[in-house]
Design a protein around this nucleic acid. Structure first.
Lengths: 253, 253
DNA sequence: CAGTGGTCTAGACCACAAG
DNA sequence: TTGTGGTCTAGACCACTGA
């Protein structure tokens, strides 16, 4: 007795900690500011470092914090809005395209992709790699799968790979009449190569945007784009390009 | 010497484990099957339980596994496609609406919401709670904020809250001419109340879909819907309602 | 009740960035 | 070299489910 029992339904420590830190971020820190290191913070709150880290992971997932090994933990800016599916009814590589073409290869796509493209199994397709940068920061990495018969005019003279070839593939695509496109978004984790390109560790949470480009009743191209989930807010079907989302997030305890 | 050094760039154990388990799931398990418990699995792979759990968390994030306290870990079915922003150019509560109306209250919205609705601060708005069920499973919880002047015909006779009131609010909304709607998707973590409704623990990853309904040049209503990120794949702008996504995910090591 | 996943601890060492 | 976050361990106890 004498000990006041406030927690009738004891909330996990890390969850409570997340709330406390979240409020501290709103009131006492400004964007870009660095937090005390994890060992100090854990000691200050009287918890083990693992528990403190659980709270930080939550906040990072919500885009409130940014952590970098060897550097520290900083307060993240509000997520940036990146528009997806504007360029509605437009092929990739068009004039209003936010992507930068990297290179191209002739590869056998993963089974999931081959299934969506009606092409036969083990049929190699043009695989264009592109990346998207916004506000000086990489936000997405894309693989664009284009079956050979979607770009019949493609000259066989050029090398089968490289940046020039990639641009040629995109150029040929514009000749097709685009019926419509279908988008899907799901949560994924960054593969090692995507992670490197996005400046994150493998396994980092990403939003995977899959776009089917449909022409002549068939899937003429398939794009699989992985966006950094911590820094991006995907906007659909509205006007205009990149916008900054303003104000604090709505997720709170 | 004598020890063969295969790992020149040693991959983290949990990441390697994730890959091994992922492949095992593809080849040796079928949907719904239960895995050995965490202690056994950890022992079998010769790692600490915390490490094994890190791998399982990844796979759960990717929608490959489902874990339930007191029960066990099971192989998850492929994510279901839930269509968002079909009912494009349609108010919530319309005939083709996939949502179930729960109740309604007159509340002061969070600052972020009040900012988007042009309504003044501390101005209470109609707050309609709805839920979305798909394949017998709750997939999303929604809060729909409707400023009072968007539903001028709303009778003041009824009680200011309850399910009947909620339906009345939605009915009145249909009278406005909808100009367009804007969608945004971002990653979040489930608040305690959302988590309960989605049958998950607090902090579970969710996809937050924010929809602005615009009429007469103003934001006439704002919807904030949180979807289970582990089980859902959001589809945009295509035809048709709910579809099952087929085949394994594309994320692999 | 027994068995499951969820939380938490107090350490240790590693990989990386920057001075 | 120093200090950071990232990984890993071997335990402990708790909350929940279902028999």
């Amino acid at each position: 007795m004498g000990t006041t029992q406030l927690e009738t339904v004891p909330e996990p420590k890390y969850w409570h900690l997340r709330t406390v830190l979240s409020e501290a971020l709103d009131s006492e820190f400004s964007v870009g500011e660095i937090l005390p290191n994890e060992r100090d913070l854990a000691a200050r709150f009287g918890v083990a470092r693992a528990t403190l880290r659980q709270a930080l992971e939550q906040l990072e997932l919500e885009g409130r914090l940014q952590r970098r090994r060897g550097v520290g933990t900083t307060v993240a800016p509000p997520r940036m809005g990146v528009s997806v599916g504007t360029a509605q009814h437009a092929w990739p590589g068009g004039p209003l395209d936010a992507w930068q073409t990297l290179d191209c290869a002739l590869e056998t796509p993963p089974a999931t992709v081959a299934e969506t493209l009606v092409t036969g199994r083990d049929e190699p397709v043009h695989t264009v790699r592109r990346s998207r940068v916004s506000h000086g920061q990489p936000v997405a990495a894309e693989l664009l799968y284009v079956p050979a018969d979607s770009v019949p005019g493609l000259s066989g003279i050029d090398a089968p790979s490289g940046a020039a070839r990639a641009r040629a593939v995109l150029r040929e695509l514009q000749h097709l009449e685009l019926e419509r496109q279908e988008n899907a978004v799901e949560l994924g984790s960054a593969r090692a190569d995507d992670a490197r390109e996005l400046d994150r560790l493998p396994g980092a949470p990403v939003l995977v945007v899959t776009t089917r480009f449909i022409a002549r009743g068939r899937t003429a191209a398939l794009s699989v784009a992985t966006y950094r989930a911590d820094t991006c807010r995907l906007t659909f079907g509205d006007s205009g390009g990149v916008q900054i989302h303003h104000g604090p997030e709505q997720q709170a305890s």
